[in-house]
Design a protein around this nucleic acid. Sequence first.
DNA 1: GTCTATAGAACGATAGAC
DNA 2: GTCTATCGTTCTATAGAC
Lengths: 190, 190
Amino acid sequence: MDTSERLIRSTQELLRDRGYVGTSPKAILQHAQAGQGSMYHHFSGKPDLALAAIRRNAEEMRAEAEAALAHGGTALERIDAYLLREREVLRGCPIGRLAQDPEVVASEDLRQPVQETLGWLQERIAGVLADGVARGELPADLGTGATAATIAAVVQGGYVLARAADSVDHFDRAIEGVRTLLGAISQHRQ
Amino acid sequence: MDTSERLIRSTQELLRDRGYVGTSPKAILQHAQAGQGSMYHHFSGKPDLALAAIRRNAEEMRAEAEAALAHGGTALERIDAYLLREREVLRGCPIGRLAQDPEVVASEDLRQPVQETLGWLQERIAGVLADGVARGELPADLGTGATAATIAAVVQGGYVLARAADSVDHFDRAIEGVRTLLGAISQHRQ
DNA sequence: GTCTATAGAACGATAGAC
DNA sequence: GTCTATCGTTCTATAGAC
């Protein structure tokens, strides 16, 4: 693996674990086993390298979400596949994490991939729900956009509750709650 | 207002906006209009002052949540009062914010009030839901604990989605979705 | 209690040799 | 492309005068 790639991957890890303000170039260089010169040869500075790493994290998260949501079955089975997919819960969401970082939110460039990815996720979930409505699996008056936002929020909030309690159970419990609510509404269809 | 109080309140503001790793003693002192000596006279250092500020933020958040949840009416009306209470959404949750901070999570002392507050919140919501079940407003087989976790997670996740999009609408949409789901289940009672 | 001065380390970035 | 040396600043904390 070349140095540029090692730098990006190291930054992905550190951004996820410590956020942007909590990640120093020095820490990245140590993790990537690279020298000062390498980083400033391949990237213009910390924001540039971080942007590359955030985009990579965004691609990966999108691919994993898509893999779950593209499954066959009913709309609810596809949502379940997404909600129950494997996650490193206590490390937090590599993208959602950054929405809480003051310098990411303050920078149009750094925030853009975060906004795009979470926006895409909600639209993708809303599409799956709309399929379910079209097939008569879900009530016709289900607000697909609002429900999709709720599903995405439960996952993001689940990370928060789990990290606060230092326990994956708290994530699982929030997911269980929303799955129960969704299951009840599906049997409630017109 | 005395200096100690000004230091705590300034730290409350900065912790909420920038987190623990993003907040320096220097920034606190400027915000509080205090000198270097004052801070180290009243507090042993950054962690000590941060702990005082986190506890204060926790008290305040708890009081505001309690005010909403203690309202009269049905269980769902009380949950609604909580979900719809005024918030500075784009600033994020003063407590949930800290669950994403690497140094808060790494310190037992700093994480404790975060864990306690979010734990209390979920128990309080679960209690309101249990009241609703006892009164026949909600289905007997509602998992009150899991549902409470979901409600708390939607709020925390709503902050994340809103900050990512730089738009309060994204918070409101997630809240709308969970209110609709809860409303449907309440008419679904046995 | 509050001030200024200072400490040693880490911060993010640049320079210039190889 | 990568290295080491260095820059000016900020970080968190301490010292000592007042």
